[in-house]
């Protein structure tokens, strides 16, 4: 599809979103409810991932380094 401007493209994207979710048949106030719920959920997902993902990653790193790494050289030679 050829678009002249960015707004045209965005309008098309929004229209596709309306069609795919089926909310083009809803009344405007229902649409806004749906959109705000969706935005809220996505914002919460973004926030929680911002807050918690670094912690989880750090913990995971610690855990795996405890499992695989951290062995001293003498232990390796002893095993071989």
């Amino acid at each position: 599809m050829a678009f002249k401007t960015l707004t045209e493209y965005l309008a098309w994207l929004y229209y596709q979103y309306l069609l795919c979710t089926g909310i083009y048949v809803l009344e405007p106030w229902e649409k806004s409810i749906f959109n705000s719920i969706l935005l809220l959920v996505m914002a919460m997902v973004a926030y929680t991932s911002y807050v918690f993902v670094p912690i989880h990653v750090r913990l995971a790193l610690q855990f795996f380094s405890g499992v695989f790494g951290g062995q001293t050289e003498s232990a390796v030679t002893l095993m071989s």
């Binding site: 069609l19 795919c20 979710t21 089926g22 909310i23 048949v25 809803l26 749906f34």
Partner: peptide, 12 residues
């Protein structure tokens, strides 16, 4: 997508 759309409209 069709089922998703129907689901959303049904919820409403």
């Amino acid at each position: 997508l069709t089922y998703l759309g129907f689901g959303i409209v049904t919820l409403f």
